[in-house]
Amino acid sequence: MFQTADMFKAFAPYRGNAVVIPGRGGRHWINLSDKPDRDVPLGDPAMGGHASFALGLALARPDEKIILFDSEGDILMNMGALPTIAEKDPKNFYHFVLDNGVYATTGGQPVPNAENIQYDVIAKGSGYPSTYAFDNLEDFANNIEEILSKPGPVFVTMKVVPEVENVPIGQRVRWQKKTRDQTIADLQKDLGPRKS
């Protein structure tokens, strides 16, 4: 098990020009990123939808590398997204999952069967051609360059330390630097018009 912040530090040198959807670990990414207009910290529009959103973005922009940092709670809420991703087979899609085993934003209650579930096996069974699972930072850091050099869709699950929040939602400090609308506008400006 390793820290999300350390994972992002290991990932950062290999980001290249990719679009990054940092998901629930975004607070640790936002100050590391050197391309904020290509970051898509959406917060939580509706739980369980990040993977499908990233798929849509990857299909709309096949020439751009799309990197998602999803969570196991989101995966569990919409596991049916995995076969859709595998079927569409986006070569530019990299699907990382932060597995802390709990619903961290609601107080740290465990997700169903947290100790035994194998997300990489589920992804493999759904049809992802490349899957990885890491439970220590050194292995992750040693493999990140290879992972990002493979054709997608690639699935990578990582056991990370829970960062439980017990403060009521209305009292939490907002870590995003931009509104959601501004985030999307900046991304679209940076990407430019879509090739039909």
């Binding site: 509706a46 959103f53 569409k88």
Partner: peptide
Amino acid sequence: LDLIAVSREGQAFSTASGLSVGGAKP
């Protein structure tokens, strides 16, 4: 037309959102 088959309708909305943000028209 590119068909994207989902397995629960909620996925359709987030998928369409990503497509639209990327400049496609779902």
